[in-house]
């Protein structure tokens, strides 16, 4: 099912990390986070777990809303490119392919200047809301 009006409710972990959902942009689910101390590692860099979580959330949301369902992550692949300091991370996630109850998503993370920070792909199990 493809219902463009369906919007999922985000998790407690989403709120706990201070993530925000922005306006969708050209088919992309857009999630952002203003970098705070809690997002950093022992060296003052943004922890890799923040990038992984942003991609998991954005890609999962994109697939969920395309299929009007809930997604469980099966696998997640992330490449990290630019580890310089930044004040904001913006993640754009897209649904790529849905086949039965398996969906794939892809996405990228940029900083506030549009520099590509990370890219990822993920596979999800899709559970329909009416199941």
């Amino acid at each position: 099912m493809n219902n463009n009006n369906y919007k999922i409710v985000q998790s407690t972990f989403f709120d706990y990390l201070g993530f925000k959902r922005l306006q969708d942009d050209n088919g992309a689910v857009v999630i952002s986070v203003d970098v705070q101390e809690i997002h950093k590692d022992e060296n003052g860099h943004i922890a890799s777990g923040i990038h992984y979580t942003l991609l998991d959330v954005a890609l999962g949301t994109a697939v969920s809303e395309k299929e009007n369902g809930f997604t469980l992550t099966i696998d997640l692949h992330v490449q990290l490119f630019d580890l310089n300091q930044c004040e904001k991370l913006i993640c754009r996630g897209y649904p790529v392919n849905i086949n039965g109850n398996i969906g794939n998503g892809r996405g990228d993370i940029f900083d506030e200047n549009g520099v590509l920070i990370a890219s990822g792909m993920a596979t999800f199990k899709v559970i329909q809301n009416n199941a």
């Binding site: 709120d15 890799s48 777990g49 992984y52 979580t53």
Partner: peptide
């Protein structure tokens, strides 16, 4: 803990990935 869960009440995928990285 509750603040680490997804909307289905299970541990969020981002938590798994973060723990593995640590």
């Amino acid at each position: 803990q509750n603040n680490l869960l997804n909307t289905k009440g299970t541990l969020h995928g981002g938590v798994y990935a973060s723990i593995l990285d640590f």
